[in-house]
Amino acid sequence: MAMSGMGGGKGRGRYRAMAEINVTPLVDVMLVLLIIFMVAAPLMTVGVPVDLPKTNASALNQETEPLTISVNAEGRIFIQESEVPTEGLVERLRAILAEQPAGAPERRIFVRGDKGINYGRVMEVMGTVSAAGFTKVALLAEQPSGTPAAGGTRPATPAPAQPQRR
């Protein structure tokens, strides 16, 4: 009779596999990855290092991502992060203009010029952009860190100056 209590009754005393998945380690890993990406995301949008001049102009609202043309301290020209020679700038911009869908609003172009660069070089780039067929061209400047920006934006973010229209 001592044998009947040792696991003989239809598997009641036997070990059965647990049918539930423990998701705690998965949640821990996902939270760590989320924190890593939240910290790393702002660092991935740096692009070309340009020392922008300061301005008190307020930031403009935008629906689409603008195209950024940068002129660094050496006078080299970049479209987004890729360097473009001055001679090839018009062709590259016309190709971008041709890729734009029909009926879409014209893409805005921001020109970022290093504050140590000659003003004439920045105006030369702006003239080249206008020659390519773009009319919504604006200069970017950085707002001073002590002045609050209009519209509730952070004061240290770059803000476009008044657009130059031709």
Rank of each mutant, 00 (worst) to 15 (best):
E106T: 10
E106M: 15
R107Y: 12
R107A: 06
R107K: 10
R107I: 01
R107W: 09
R108M: 13
I109G: 05
R112Q: 03
R112E: 05
G113D: 11
K115N: 15
K115Q: 12
K115C: 06
I117A: 07
I117N: 00
N118Q: 14
N118L: 12
Y119C: 10
Y119N: 15
Y119M: 13
G120M: 07
G120V: 04
G120A: 11
G120D: 10
R121N: 03
V122N: 13
E124G: 08
E124P: 01
E124V: 07
V125G: 04
V125H: 06
M126F: 09
M126L: 01
G127S: 07
G127V: 00
G127T: 01
T128S: 05
T128A: 03
T128Y: 03
V129E: 06
V129P: 10
S130Q: 10
S130H: 04
S130I: 03
A131G: 05
A131C: 07
A132Q: 10
A132F: 15
G133S: 14
F134L: 09
F134C: 02
F134V: 05
F134W: 09
F134K: 06
F134R: 14
T135K: 13
T135C: 02
T135D: 03
T135R: 09
K136S: 12
K136Y: 02
K136H: 08
A138P: 06
A138Y: 04
L140T: 09
A141L: 07
A141R: 06
A141K: 04
E142H: 07
E142Y: 01
E142Q: 13
E142N: 06
Q143W: 05
Q143A: 04
S145A: 15
S145P: 03
S145I: 13
G146Q: 14
G146S: 14
G146H: 13
T147L: 04
T147W: 02
T147A: 06
T147C: 05
P148A: 11
A149I: 05
A150S: 12
A150T: 13
A150M: 15
G151E: 11
G151I: 06
G151C: 14
G151L: 09
